[in-house]
Design a protein around this nucleic acid. Structure first.
Lengths: 153, 153
DNA sequence: GTTTTATAGTTGTATATACAAATGTATCGT
DNA sequence: ACGATACATTTGTATATACAACTATAAAAC
């Protein structure tokens, strides 16, 4: 299914427009699929992301700004994401003793357990799309996307 | 800037994960930029999309389900999008005389004027990213994205 | 040491999105 | 014609996101 099929466009678009729509739409498809994976666990994509970042800390807590910094969507509201995770006992939150402006967020055992349970499903989700492409094509796709978005301005 | 730089990852990821993150993040960058373009006009991306679809009707009205069908994000709430556009006098909304279940939405002169004003800025937005790639690379990127998301399952 | 400036995080508000339930209208089978 | 079913759209509710204003703490300037 081409992007023209998706939006029922009768006219053929030029390459710049097609690329943008293809990226937007592909992200949409990916996100929908991933939400399905997460749904049984009552996690949003961004909440999952925060948990993953916290696990990556290897036992050390992360400040709000560190979490923010490592997320894809830089603008989302970390405080409220952590609030949600706190309600589910997936994280703990404490004022940093050295610098009382900072907050230390850590993942709990329960949070780690959920991630462990999710791991194989996440890998399945990640790989199923890539199976359509060869390794060389995947590398090329990565290169092209990075080149595309890194415009100098 | 590689995707690892973006999320401050110290470990190198495998290709499937990198591709997914690259697509998600690139979409993010695109959307942020496009929102900036639209901001002075008090339009959201989806609202703009609806207007564009209506202009594409060449004077004919479009039903809600037609609009829905042509949008990228199939799940968004068309009624409320049209509500917002109605408040700004960019569209009209009438019950379809032949089938009273249906709604006929049309773009107004004012709506067309806004699109006309936006057109060059949208084209600028679309082309500026593509300038990093050759025509061949753009075509390849389109192909790879379509191949990637069209998994059989 | 007190004022200014910078940093870290939270809260308010408006809007957007997801998803299910509800409403109103048309169509089909008998 | 009548009930069942399908279709088109709207509404309710919960959650997510965007963005600005606010609070609290720390560091720097003088």
């Amino acid at each position: 299914m081409t992007i023209e099929d998706v939006i029922k466009s009768t006219v053929k678009m030029d390459n710049p427009k097609r690329v943008i729509l293809n990226i937007m739409y592909t992200q949409n498809v990916l996100q929908d699929k991933f939400n399905e994976v997460l749904k049984p666990y009552d996690l949003s994509g961004e909440q999952y992301n925060v948990l993953r970042i916290l696990r990556g800390q290897k036992g050390n807590p992360a400040n709000m700004c560190v979490i923010q910094d490592r997320m894809l969507a830089k603008t989302s509201n970390t405080t409220r994401l952590v609030d949600k995770l706190l309600l589910k006992d997936f994280v703990t939150r404490n004022v940093c003793p050295n610098n009382r402006r900072k907050i230390e967020v850590s993942i709990t055992e329960k949070g780690l357990d959920v991630l462990t349970e999710l791991d194989p499903k996440v890998i399945e989700h990640e790989t199923v799309f890539s199976e359509n492409l060869t390794t060389e094509e995947l590398e090329l796709l990565n290169e092209l996307l990075e080149k595309f978005r890194n415009q100098k301005n």
